[in-house]
């Protein structure tokens, strides 16, 4: 039952996501590969679209994958509905429990100790995800100098902007700029 699997998979993803959307990408990638649902390249496309559209990345990803996988089984709507429900449920339940029962959850020393151990793992995972993506972008059937050029330009732009304006360059701007660069450099 593909819909149930979508729900359970995204429930699992939602349950183990700490620190926002990027933290879940490594797990999404593994789950997609384990189920044979999406390849890394399509996932990258989805992340790009998720960044350029409103709303939390996690929801966007779930809706996207759910629609794509559910569509293959007959109903994209049911697929995206169940995947999105799945990714939302763990937060919803956890927060409700905290709001109703565990008002002093944050003051618990052991809870904070566990979190202090989880956070570095998540940061390590995100670094690894980024590094693997850089590798996959560069080393295709042959070395992709164009992708390297785009990464250098976009990377330099975001670092430069941060240094000069003390703010992060908007992800939407970066996505649009890299799309234009892609159209330009891959046409030659």
């Amino acid at each position: 039952m593909i819909y149930l699997r979508l729900f359970l998979t995204f429930f699992k993803i939602g349950l183990f996501t700490f620190g926002g959307g990027y933290g879940m990408i490594a797990i999404i990638q593994q789950e997609m590969a384990a189920n044979g649902w999406l390849d890394a390249e399509m996932l990258s496309n989805f992340i790009g679209i998720s960044e350029a559209t409103p709303g939390p990345i996690a929801i966007n990803m779930a809706t996207f994958v759910g629609s794509a996988i559910g569509g293959g089984a007959g109903s994209p709507f049911l697929g995206s509905l169940l995947a999105t429900l799945g990714v939302v449920m763990p937060s919803f339940i956890t927060i409700l429990l905290i709001a109703t029962l565990f008002k002093n959850f944050m003051d618990n020393k052991f809870v904070s100790a566990v979190l202090c151990g989880i956070k570095p793992v998540v940061v390590g995972l995100i670094f690894a995800t980024g590094a693997i993506l850089v590798y996959n972008n560069l080393f295709k059937s042959e070395f992709d100098f164009r992708a390297l050029a785009i990464m250098i330009v976009i990377g330099a732009a975001t670092i430069g902007y941060k240094l000069i304006r003390k703010k992060d360059l908007s992800p939407i701007f970066m996505i649009v700029a890299s799309a234009c660069l892609g159209m330009l450099v891959y046409s030659f």
């Binding site: 990027y22 990258s44 496309n45 992340i47 993506l133 164009r146 990464m151 992800p171 799309a179 892609g182």
Partner: peptide
């Protein structure tokens, strides 16, 4: 398709920045 090749490269940068 070319635009999305550019976006894929950008996503790698975005993820590293988030890290």
């Amino acid at each position: 398709g070319k635009a999305f090749k550019g976006i894929q490269a950008c996503v790698a940068v975005l993820i590293l920045r988030a890290a």
